[in-house]
Simulated scan of single mutants.
Amino acid sequence: MERYVDGFVIPVLNEQLDAYREMASEAGKLWIKHGALEYFEGVGDDMEPDMDGMPMVTFPQLADTESDETVVFSFIVFESRDHRDEVNAKVMEDPTMDSDNYEEEMPFDPERMAYGGFRSIVSYE
């Protein structure tokens, strides 16, 4: 089966990381409730890896983070692109997503979030 993944790279202020974790925890429950196969949120840890001199762009460079920010790497796994579209439609229709339910601002700047949908070309389980 060809899996499909929505991927995200998000710069988050260090002081907002706990708020982001809370938001992500609720979001993860919501996506799983509506059929996503896996939901993952990870915070940057080894952001300047030693690649034995190999040139590369690091995630902080990619996300253009400031000194008071970190990078969150996230992904959601689906059965297929069609399945992704079905799950995301259900999530958006869920009453939890009603903007009136959000008392606080997002704990990150959505305009700086990088997002993409990816079809799998190699997958091992």
Rank of each mutant, 00 (worst) to 15 (best):
K90C: 13
M56T: 11
G7N: 13
D100R: 07
F78K: 00
Y4W: 02
M56I: 12
M92V: 06
D85R: 10
G35Q: 06
E104H: 13
D46V: 07
D98E: 15
M54D: 08
I76E: 06
F73Y: 15
V87Q: 06
P60H: 03
Y124C: 06
G42F: 15
M92T: 02
T96Q: 13
A36P: 08
P49A: 04
P110R: 04
P11M: 01
Y115W: 11
S25T: 14
Y39Q: 15
G35S: 06
N101M: 12
V5Q: 11
G53A: 03
P60G: 01
A89I: 08
E93M: 14
E26Q: 11
L37T: 01
G28F: 12
A27N: 14
M113C: 03
D94M: 05
Y39G: 14
K33F: 13
F40R: 11
V9L: 11
D50I: 01
M92Y: 00
D100P: 00
F8N: 00
V5H: 12
S67V: 05
E69W: 06
D46N: 12
D64N: 12
L13T: 08
D18R: 08
Q61K: 10
V72E: 02
V12K: 02
T96L: 10
P11D: 04
D68C: 03
A114G: 07
P49E: 03
Q16S: 05
Q61E: 15
D100N: 10
H34I: 14
T65W: 12
P110H: 01
D98R: 12
A63Q: 06
M56D: 01
M106R: 05
G42T: 08
V57E: 11
S25G: 14
M106W: 08
E48C: 13
K33V: 03
D98G: 09
M23F: 15
E2A: 09
D68G: 02
M113N: 00
E26Y: 11
R119F: 00
E104P: 00
P49H: 10
P55W: 01
E66N: 03
E2L: 10
E38P: 04
D82M: 09
F75E: 01
F59Q: 13
E66G: 04
D82F: 06
Y39M: 04
F59R: 06
E2R: 13
M54L: 15
D46K: 00
L62S: 02
R21Y: 02
L30N: 11
S80V: 03
V71S: 02
A36Q: 07
M47W: 09
H34P: 02
K33R: 03
S80I: 09
S25F: 15
R119W: 05
E69L: 04
P60Q: 05
F8L: 14
V5K: 08
E93G: 00
V71F: 07
R81G: 14
G7D: 00
P55H: 07
N88W: 03
E103S: 14
A36W: 15
R84D: 05
H83K: 01
N88F: 09
V87P: 05
E26N: 11
L13S: 04
Y115T: 08
L37R: 08
S67Y: 07
G53S: 10
Q16A: 07
S74W: 00
E104K: 08
A63N: 04
F40W: 12
F40C: 05
G28I: 07
H83D: 01
T96Y: 13
W31F: 15
V71Y: 00
Y39E: 00
E26R: 10
G35Y: 03
R119G: 15
N101Q: 07
N88Y: 04
M1T: 06
V57S: 11
